[in-house]
Design a binder for these strands. Structure first.
Length: 153
DNA sequence: GCCAACGTTGGC
DNA sequence: GCCAACGTTGGC
């Protein structure tokens, strides 16, 4: 089992939005970066756990824990001309963008980016690397345990 | 709203 | 295949 961190802008899908959805599940739509896509397509497995991270907001940070609950499948928004995520170069026969569904496990005590940066145990997290822009990043078991066991305690 | 970093595009 | 231009991300 692997651990991940997945960024979402709360103005688009917040932890509370996820909690309010049918089955508390959401397709992780809108990823348009190949590295992040490849994590979903190639590395994620049903049952993997992920931090649900709020980005692009006043206080960025981890807002909850979710779980991968589907195998990869095409992101429907890439085929919708009305969607901001529309991709004219993709086609249903040869979809470019795949996603997985995630289900809420729990809303956690909020762990701000500032606190994450302050923990030397987390110095190697890709999230904290300078100018990191990747919306899905791996989390090590040690980092996961430190965040859930210490920062969320 | 600024700006640094970085991925993508497209001309050559 | 190089690389400049451009667009986007995301913290501040």
């Amino acid at each position: 089992m692997r651990y991940w961190l997945m960024k979402s802008e709360p103005a688009e899908v917040s932890i509370d939005d996820l909690a309010a959805r049918p089955g508390q599940t959401v397709p992780w739509f809108g990823v348009r970066n190949y590295q992040a896509r490849n994590f979903m397509r190639d590395a994620m497995r049903v049952g993997d756990l992920a931090f649900f991270y709020h980005s692009g907001c006043a206080e960025p940070g981890i807002a909850g824990i979710c779980q991968v609950c589907s195998t990869p499948y095409p992101d429907a928004t890439q085929f919708d001309p009305a969607s901001p995520y529309f991709d004219a170069k993709s086609s249903p026969a040869n979809p470019r963008w795949l996603l997985v569904d995630v289900r809420l496990i729990e809303k956690t005590p909020y762990v701000s980016l500032r606190r994450l940066r302050g923990a030397s145990e987390l110095a190697n997290m890709p999230l904290l690397a300078r100018a990191n822009r990747l919306s899905i990043t791996p989390v090590s078991a040690a980092e996961w345990q430190f965040i859930t066991g210490t920062l969320m305690a």
